[in-house]
Amino acid sequence: MLAFIVRRLIQSVLVMLAVALVGFALFTYVGDPINNMVGQDTSIEDRERLREDLGLNDPFPVQFFRFVVNAAQADFGISYRHGRPVEDLLVERAPATLELSFAAGLFALFVGVPMGIYTALNRRSWLSKVFLTVSLIGVSLPTFLIGILLILVFSVWLGWLPSFGRGETVQFGWWSTGFLTWDGLTALIMPAITLGLFQMTLIMRLVRAEMLEVLRTDYIKFARARGLSARAVNFGHALKNTLVPVITITGLQLGSVIAFAIITETVFQWPGMGLLFIQAIEFVDIPVMAAYLVLVAFLFVLINLIVDLLYFAVDPRLRVGGGGGQGL
């Protein structure tokens, strides 16, 4: 177990270094950071001095090393556009994105899993067919279109839900939450559904496929042969085995939910990191772009690691190294 964790940690570090390299390459090769910082009238000498001061003339490995060390301390430099430390901007925007992703994840999980179970257990029912058809539409419509359609129906026509922004938030130290006000919650509904819809259909189909697979196994047949109730067989034996692989995929999906939040945040003008990133692209605000890239990669890697550990907790075959077998 320990060896496994150590191995996964080393892998994680390697992945992060690779991403850092990409982020750093952005810095170095896209545009000239000096041009972005100083005005038109700065002299060549001043520019050179600044370049020297910032260490931009140092050899590549030295610069990269400095970038990694700074990044590891959450120091990504100053935003060209906002003139403030990038990490401050991210910390300010993070709660919005994380809350949105969390709500989208919950929506995907708590709607997708029951729908998957239902469609697996009632394969022939018309409701299953409706679910599957609707989910197909959900997968094939682009996110922004779904968002715009929702806004059209629920904000423009019905006027039930706000069409943009986070609504009223409550501040807890540096964390601002929209979970505690009615306004904040209603503002969350449409963005969360928009962001979570794709994952929901994915989870539904995954749960359905896994469950059908599990229902065909010998141990389910044997559980039935032992006279266990349908409930015990379906929800005790089958569901637990279904959820083992589902945990992995769902966990990994949470990473992509955070990444995909960019589009949803743009559609709903949601003040999160994704919107910050889109605006950074418009202004070629390299420090923000690099930081966002590294941060999203970090979240991916972190979630991956947690999922692997969860897997360990659920599946006893991984937990115990197979020992204890007693031959005859």
Binding site: Y219, K221, F222, A225, R226, H237, K240, V314, D315
Partner: peptide
């Protein structure tokens, strides 16, 4: 009662 062919797959691995 029933006993099936393959004891390796007759038991639920998670319980």
């Amino acid at each position: 009662g029933a006993v099936f062919q393959d004891p390796l797959t007759s038991l639920n691995p998670l319980y």
